[in-house]
Nucleic acid binder design. Sequence first.
DNA 1: GAGCACTGC
Length: 754
Amino acid sequence: MVNSRIIKQRESLPIFHFRQEIIDAIKNENLLVIIGETGSGKTTQIPQYILESFEDCRLIGVTQPRRIAAITVANRVSEEHGTRLGSEVGYCIRFDDCTSAKTRLKYMTDGVLLREATLDPKLEHYDVIIIDEAHERTLETDVLFGLLKETHRLRPELKILVMSATLNVEKFSDFFNECPIFSIPGRTYEVAINHHRDAKIISLKSTYVQRAVDTTLYIHTHEPPGDILVFLTGQNEIEKSCRDLDNQARELNYRRDVQYYDEVRNLIVFPIYASLETMEQKAIFEDPPEGTRKVVFATNIAQTSVTIPGIKYVIDSGYVKQKSYDPSTGMDALLVVPISQAAATQRAGRAGRTAPGKAFRLYSRESFEQLEVDTVPEIQRSSLLGTVLSLKKMGIRDILHFEFIDPPDPMLVKNALKQLFLLEAIDEQGMLTPLGDEMCIFPLNPFLSRVLIASARQFGCSREVSTIVAMLSVEEIFITPRDEERLFEADERRKVFYHSSGDYMTLLQVFEGYRDSGYDRDWCRDRYLNHRALSMAKNVRDQLRELMERHGVSIISCRQKDNQDGDHRKKRSKQTYYETKKYDFTKILEAFSTSYFIHLAKRHPHRSVFYHYASANIHTSEMIDSNSSLLALHISPLSALHPENKIVKVDSLDWVIYHSILYTSKALMKVVSKVKLEWIEEKLKLFKKLETVDLGVDDNKKDKQEKEVDDESVDSIGKESNYIDEEEMKRKKLEAIEAARQRALNRRSLNPDN
DNA sequence: GAGCACTGC
């Protein structure tokens, strides 16, 4: 039963005063936007108001961008509602469906709802859909917006609520037929913003780390007690800042240097970023000891995902490390770029959660005003491969004209269609093929779905491939420590797992070692393996195998009948963990080649760099096809095939396939394997075919013209040798990335979407 | 040869 304490608490929330108005608004409107700042209680209360006053409402779905939020909110609400979690109020995230036939209020991640929509585009089970945290503009949220607008046409009685924290929500209202906006006051404190007097943000790029440390020290010596949160961009600079600040703070003479020395006599410094091994440690989330000031150097993780209590001062570098996909090269670039005004406001807000605070921006007010108003939404800087496949599965034919709230560059859509054609998921007219339909079974990147199906149907190795595919679906497996001694040790320990064919097999060997250890955390720690990632991989593998069984995708092993099964461990060399003739690993690599022929690369004749090999000139062994084929690709230092790891001779590397490329200061191929060209030659014909099909998009003509221009310009530079000077390419690449970014930004500012 | 922001099915 609900006790009076809970009732009191609920009634003390600012939102309670608007209860009846909110209920009336929802009664009257089927499309509604609700603004409510953090702490208003909108996420927990509004769904309950609906539950309490709409008795014939069957099911309310509330989406969250993050799993942890879905769980904690559902917990809280089921308690307030006086029912057991999973009965009337539940949650659903990947690997954990905590709902039942009784459930009327379901918190879930936006990814779960999107996946449900591929099975049931009209979302018939729901009477109310609430998209929460809409301002975060995740890829999934944006796709749901487009779908829900269509659903509203088909099922106008479905109630659709969009909840957001920012004030710039006219856009949401405009998109949903200019629906009403309901605003709820928040419960945050005043944050005084201090801009740097004159520092231009652009000139800050090389100095913000040093300035951030200096500013932290300034606050420590001149401002009253209160913890400090510093926004930087990545692991390296965060670790460096922690060291620098620690050293400088040690030099302080508190009585002489520190203005509030009666209350501030010490400093404690923490790093926080997602890949931090010790993130679960509590100290960072606890109040520091009496007289000690806590400083946290953080990535963007502290902007939305993680809340550190007690922060009174925020220092904002003005920069963020952001991923963006370039369809012309198929590469993800991970670059440090200035943040948006919206992000700066959000960062500052972190100082006012529990009391009034102060924000120090390392850039001037003028610079702030020149920042983009909003962050470019994820959908405009991601590969749309999986999204386009899902939309096709839902029966949406014309994806180029799908109603996105902020449409992605048509290049992104066309690029996805081309890749889906190469994967044989769509046909020449852009229609979903039976294979494409089957690929939608798996919650995987379409490249990997295709490989998994091929491994079952053609190559008889789906047991092993399901493991490798799971390993490829999780975060980085290998831990790289910061201090040199441990770094060396980690490098050594990793070598045990390396397989001479490359990293797909290496990943299999890592997982098997993990399995044989009994999924042991200490086993991982001793080998510098990320236990969190490996246990996630186990979950994914189990889920994939369940889906395979359910959908008649057979699970077959390519393990060879080895006579003395127990013996292979004795026979293993010092260098490798398992490498024996245990598996017919060429089958596995052939299976991967069914997708990754698209990522075929050839080595430079004399060096250990590679070039993407486009099919058009495969028979002339010319490297020139388009810009993308000329960028020098480097093997990741973590790869078994990296020359320094001495698993293979560089000369023996000829053709490789890579799983992905990340561009930071240069293009790095991650997860690389040796292949034989004969496995792939047949598939390369698809590239030729690609030039003659329109995939349901009738403007291939224009594309071809653009392509010819590219060819010419490249050809004139590269006549001498088939290779372009690497520095030159690097510069061109950076220009291209910057130009693409500018295009994305311009499109947004020219097109405010009225 | 020296790396990788953050999520999610």
